[in-house]
């Protein structure tokens, strides 16, 4: 069975590396991007099965990324947003733009795994 492709957009290198390690252990093929511009370029080439993105990123925020994917690329790929600034405004605008889920930092890698698998099941297995 092919591995699910996952794009992880996170500017914190250590956290990205840690999450990548954890996701790869669970059978995902993970591509890490450290800023919004690279994420955009990557998405223009190929759309992954799921996107996990930090909201606060250089050049291109997570919310802008959701807007870009939904309106420019017209893709319904599941997007999970992560942010340390878990204020209502951020969360509401993320969901309004079309994000599928939101996780506040500090992130529990186990919780992230559950949410990723749930989104994939919801999107691809129904």
């Amino acid at each position: 069975m092919d591995k699910r492709k996952l794009l992880l957009a996170e500017d914190d290198q250590m956290l990205a590396s840690l999450l990548k390690y954890r996701l790869e252990r669970d059978g995902y093929e993970v591509v890490i991007e450290f800023d919004g511009k690279s994420v955009k370029e990557n998405l223009e080439v190929a759309i992954p099965d799921i996107v996990i993105s930090d909201i606060m990123m250089p050049y291109f925020s997570g919310i802008e990324l959701v807007d870009y994917v939904r309106n420019q690329l017209n893709s319904d790929v599941p997007i999970i947003l992560i942010s340390a600034a878990s204020n209502d405004e951020n969360i509401v605008s993320a969901f309004e733009m079309g994000a599928n889920d939101f996780i506040a930092k500090p992130v529990s890698p186990s919780e992230l795994m559950v949410r990723v698998s749930r989104e994939i099941k919801r999107h691809y297995c129904t």
Binding site: D12, M14, L15, L18, P106, V107, S108, P109, S110, E111
Partner: peptide, 13 residues
């Protein structure tokens, strides 16, 4: 690295 990571991770990790 460990000091930075403890701020971003939660739970068992």
């Amino acid at each position: 690295i460990l000091f930075d990571l403890q701020k971003d991770v939660a739970g068992g990790t």
